[in-house]
Design a protein around this nucleic acid. Structure first.
Lengths: 98, 98
DNA sequence: TATCTATATAGATAATTATCTATGTATGCG
DNA sequence: CGCATACATAGATAATTATCTATATAGATA
């Protein structure tokens, strides 16, 4: 388990606005302007938050014309959950040196 | 789901040192001086990190003489995992307005 | 009581971050 | 082409945070 990457992902998740963004993306893929409508911060601030989420591999984006659609990176999100589950659970000896 | 508290807990988890502290506590309860031996930062810094983890309800402590023993707050950790699981999973309509 | 050990607190500092305004880029359309 | 729309980037700023040194507190023990 790469703790640097895990910390980066958890840091990406450690902001109320980004948590709410993920909650919105859990429902469906959305473009930036659609996301922005839910919040009170500026467009560059949303851009910043999306960058953090993407850098943490929690969100993917695809461009369609001028629109940028965001969706949860389900695979990486699942990996994160299982890592966190392993971290927070009482130690079960999985490896000989564990 | 209280997103403020969730963000606070995830922020507590978003530091490599604190992740490693939790990994050590997952194995067993440990006192501060025992934890400190694993790291290169100072004792007040450990004290700070433990305070953050406790403020996030992820860790509990008990005092025995001069020693302070720390252990994972398993109940709250499990709650956190399930909240995060709910956040990162494709939306399943649990509530009428969901 | 004096002292050692384990831990916390105070205060300072450097790094990070969330946010803003202003501006740039790229796409679609008349 | 000229302009509007969607989004990103640049640069500034205020707040937060991780870390340190110095010091305080509190329990154990000689």
């Amino acid at each position: 388990m790469n703790e640097e990457q895990l910390a980066k992902q958890l840091k990406a998740l450690s902001d109320v606005n980004r948590i709410q963004i993920l909650a919105l993306l859990a429902q469906k893929e959305r473009c930036a302007c659609e996301l922005l409508a839910f919040f009170h911060f500026s467009q560059p601030t949303l851009s910043h938050h999306m960058k953090v989420l993407i850098a943490g591999d929690l969100v993917r984006s695809r461009k369609v014309g001028t629109w940028n659609y965001y969706r949860i990176n389900q695979e990486k999100a699942t990996t994160l959950l299982s890592q966190l589950n392993q971290l927070l659970s009482p130690c079960s000896p999985k490896r000989k040196d564990g």
